[in-house]
Simulated assay, not measured.
Amino acid sequence: MTNKEWFLINDQVCFYPDEQIVCSLQGNKKIPLTRIVNKMLYYFCKNCRQIIKYDEMMLFIWGEKHRQIRYGSLYQALLVLRKSLEELNISSALIKTVRKKGLIFDCVVVEQKSDPKSTDNVSASETSAQSSEPLTNKPIARRPLFYLGLILLTALFSALFYYYSTKSVFDNYTAGERLSGGCMVHYNSDAHDDNHHKKFMTSHSELCKPGAMLYITTYITTNAVSVVQCDNAWLREKHIGNCLVHYFPEGK
């Protein structure tokens, strides 16, 4: 990632990898990203509308240590990225799963080398890239509280993600319930109840395959449902296609 490099996604969202931020084009809504999610979105932008293999993505994010990383950590980062883009009106369905092949970021991405608007001030009189003045010459104390807050927030997200990535991504799911199709189903334990989950499985019995493990995430406050479908319950085998992520924006 190079200085001043940024991306315009679907003519409505700006992504600043150096600052680990995505925001609306007008800059009135900004979402900080963790280091892992930031690198994932950067790789998507560099390879938009191409099939990206899971191992290629993991190698880019974690380097040579990716062989010790669970696929569940990748899926969790993917869910966080989808949620962040949804908050900026980019449909999460545009990140598509290609069975046993990988992922596609089906967006129009335009790479930029200079920024027409500052990510910390929407006012046209205070844009950061319309001036040829080097970034290092700008007053450091211009908005110290904003930068300090951003640094602390990013550090907090990074610490939380590191903590949870060292545990199983499925630790916060209920004990498995075997359905008539022969699969084991787990529900996110922080949901109000499991009625939404069971109603969803009634409509999607095709996901229940003998020996498969399903981890279903949904809440009473939203219709969206995400499902991680694994052939190996404990993820002991690390090969492409071991787990698939299904996302249903309307829960249908």
Rank of each mutant, 00 (worst) to 15 (best):
G102E: 03
T127P: 00
S128F: 04
A124V: 13
D120K: 00
S132I: 07
T127L: 05
S118T: 02
Q130M: 11
L135A: 15
I104M: 09
L135I: 12
V110H: 03
S128T: 10
N121A: 09
C107P: 01
K113Q: 13
D115A: 14
I104S: 04
P116F: 02
E133I: 14
C107S: 04
L103A: 00
V122F: 09
A129P: 03
S132E: 06
A124L: 15
D115I: 09
V109Q: 01
D115N: 11
E126I: 00
E111W: 05
S114I: 13
I104G: 05
L103T: 03
C107K: 01
A129M: 10
V110K: 13
T119Q: 00
D106M: 00
K113Y: 14
C107I: 06
V110I: 15
K101G: 02
K100Q: 10
V109P: 00
T127D: 10
V122T: 15
E133Y: 06
V122A: 06
V110E: 15
D120E: 06
I104K: 04
L103S: 02
T119P: 13
C107Q: 07
S118K: 03
S123R: 11
S128Q: 03
D106P: 04
A124N: 12
T127N: 12
S131R: 08
S118H: 03
D106G: 01
Q130P: 00
F105P: 02
S114K: 15
K100A: 06
Q130D: 09
K100S: 02
V109T: 01
K117G: 08
P134V: 04
P116E: 07
S131N: 08
K101H: 07
S114N: 14
D106R: 03
D120L: 00
C107A: 13
K100D: 11
K117H: 08
E126F: 09
V122C: 10
G102V: 05
S114M: 12
K117V: 11
S123E: 13
N121C: 13
V122K: 12
L135T: 09
E126S: 13
D106W: 00
K117L: 09
E111C: 09
S131T: 14
S128R: 09
S114E: 11
N121V: 06
S118L: 01
K101R: 12
T119R: 05
E126N: 12
A124C: 09
T127F: 06
Q130H: 06
V110Y: 05
D120N: 05
S132R: 05
N121G: 01
E111P: 11
S132D: 13
K113H: 15
N121R: 09
C107L: 08
T119A: 09
D115Q: 11
F105Q: 03
P116G: 08
D106N: 15
V108Y: 06
A129V: 07
F105N: 01
S131Y: 06
I104V: 15
F105Y: 10
S131M: 06
K113I: 13
E126V: 00
E133T: 15
E126T: 06
Q130G: 13
S118I: 01
C107Y: 02
G102M: 08
E111A: 14
V109H: 03
V110D: 12
E126K: 12
S118Y: 04
S128N: 13
K101V: 06
F105C: 02
V109L: 03
S131Q: 08
E133K: 15
V108Q: 15
A124K: 13
F105T: 03
V108K: 12
A124F: 14
A124T: 12
K101F: 07
V109R: 02
I104C: 05
